[in-house]
Amino acid sequence: MSVIEAVNVSKRFGEVEAVADVSLEVQAGEFFGLFGPNGAGKTTLLRMLTGQLDPDSGEIRTAGVPHGDPMGIKRAVGIVPEVEAPPTFLTAREYLELSCRIRELDGVPVRVDRWLGFFEMDGMGNVLCRDLSKGQRQKVMLASAFVHEPRVLLLDEPFINLDPIFQRRVREYLRGLVDESRTVFMCTHILEIAERLCTRVAVINRGRIVDQGTIDQMRVADGEGLEEIFMRLVEAG
């Protein structure tokens, strides 16, 4: 069953064609990785898949919800945006409470405690987000995306600013979700992590998908790793 579907999607910003005629499909239970050099169109595509940005043309359906219903998409999925910017004047705990209440979830204190505990932020829950470190702010953003335990997660650089302990913890959590037939769509530059996690990947360059499939399908030589595949595709494109 396809959980994320983009058909001939394009987006321009003035003169710049950020995403050009992109089509891709992600099935339930897949861990899908989207890679590309800086400015290739990854974040723009992710923002369109999550209802944050309207495509100029093409069709998108995420978690069964068409792009014309952005609130429906946001209700159905968990999103980690590119920027780790929780509200300046709320504490970490209050931000997670807000996330729960916007999503009309039950058992708010239990959920918030669980995710603060998961990220070992119990002692930082009462600190204003403004005063948290970048890594702590990223943990808060991840917790906010996980707090409603969605069937589909779309993550933009989820491991950025996390120390190795929490990179591993998040990695294992995401792998566990995929084992439960949930779906993860991730943009990242950390290819070693992606190689270990992703069941299928796509490479985007200058707004176009230049290849997609399993890593095995994308190899042209034995022993070629994701980094070599990435370099070959980007340099060719």
Binding site: K74, I79, P81, A85, F89, I102, R103, S144
Partner: peptide, 14 residues
């Protein structure tokens, strides 16, 4: 002017 609310882009609130 108190807050930019950018984080709300990821939530079902317009």
């Amino acid at each position: 002017n108190v807050e930019n609310n950018e984080c709300l882009n990821a939530m079902p609130v317009g």
